[in-house]
């Protein structure tokens, strides 16, 4: 009997070890001996703070996009979500506690506020433009990146579109519920708007000649150009807005917001932000921007 039991126990331990190893992720700092040894590396947080709660729980749910090239996109081979937003989330969570595991949850543009308000996610890093309407429902740390709205056209720019004004009278595509789309409605009211749930549908529609232009943040457009090929699409290259990407957290949690802002400044200073940028968005652009100053409103 006891032999069987010990076998079972051994098996259980083996399964647990495999699970832990599988969940640990591909980072180079996987468990170098858990336990009392590196207790000194675990940061202390004020009692009762969100950071302390997360550290205690050992997990955090983070909302991001799963289909946003360069920022948050599922890698079909590994099943892991990858991109600049994901890197930023990892860098922040790392400071909450090195052993805290991140569970990424898909948050498309339209459901981000709701997901934060309902507590489905504790933090959203999802190409999330900071604006006042959203600030009424949630709070933003950051910005950690500033994009700008630009226009993508078929290569050669047959209709000679140079900026927002030129979109009047043209067929323009963007994503439902996005800031760029609202911007077109307000500032180029003569545009005939087509809207989909994801940008690849807009790109398909333009390839088929159904729309004349696709507009959204420049980095997203660069990602589409990379995906479809420079012989198919090109970006006009004259951004006409500033879209500060922030980190969405529950309204009123100022302690958490300050913590994230502090951490952002830390990774700006130590170069980790730049490294994260090069690894992700850097794939489609040689320009490495300066990190934007955080806005402690």
């Amino acid at each position: 009997m006891s032999r069987i039991r010990s076998h079972r126990l051994g098996l259980l331990v083996l399964v647990l070890v495999v699970l832990v190893a599988a969940c640990g992720g591909g980072d180079d700092e996987v468990d170098t001996g858990t336990g009392a040894g590196d207790a000194t590396e675990v940061p202390e947080h004020p009692e009762g703070s969100t950071m302390a709660e997360i550290q205690e729980a050992g997990t955090i749910t983070v909302g991001t996009k799963f289909d946003q090239r360069l920022f948050g996109q599922t890698n079909p081979r590994t099943g892991e979500v990858e991109g600049f937003d994901v890197e930023i989330a990892k860098l922040i969570v790392e400071a909450i506690g090195p052993d805290v595991e991140i569970e990424f949850v898909e948050t498309p543009s339209a459901i981000r506020e709701t997901a934060i308000q309902e507590g489905t996610v504790q933090m959203v890093v999802a190409t999330y433009t900071i604006n006042d309407a959203r600030k009424e429902k949630i709070d933003f740390a950051g910005p950690y990146y500033v994009a700008g709205q630009d226009i993508m056209v078929p290569t050669g720019n047959p209709l000679d579109i140079g900026g927002l004004d030129d979109l009047n009278g043209k067929r323009v595509c963007s994503v439902s519920g996005s800031t760029p789309l609202q911007n077109v409605r307000t500032n180029a009211p003569g545009a005939e708007v087509t809207e989909f749930d994801v940008y690849t549908k807009c790109a398909d529609a333009m390839r088929d000649g159904r729309v004349d232009a696709v507009t959204t943040d420049n980095v997203i457009l660069l990602g589409l150009v990379e995906q479809y090929g420079a012989e198919v699409f090109e970006v006009v290259g004259d951004p006409f807005t500033t879209e500060p990407y922030g980190i969405g957290i529950p309204k009123g949690d100022d302690q958490f917001r300050t913590f994230i802002n502090d951490r952002l400044e830390e990774i700006y200073a130590n170069g980790e932000w730049t490294e994260a940028f090069k690894r992700t968005v850097g794939a489609v652009t040689d320009e490495i921007p300066e990190p934007p100053p955080v806005d402690r409103y």
Binding site: A110, E113, S176, F196
Partner: peptide, 22 residues
């Protein structure tokens, strides 16, 4: 709405995302 015909649901979706009041 999935092919961008802005009917009742599409309109609702637009208003909801503009106002963040779903």
């Amino acid at each position: 709405f999935s092919i961008s015909v802005i009917e009742l649901t599409g309109t609702t979706f637009q208003i909801a995302t503009e106002t963040a009041e779903f």
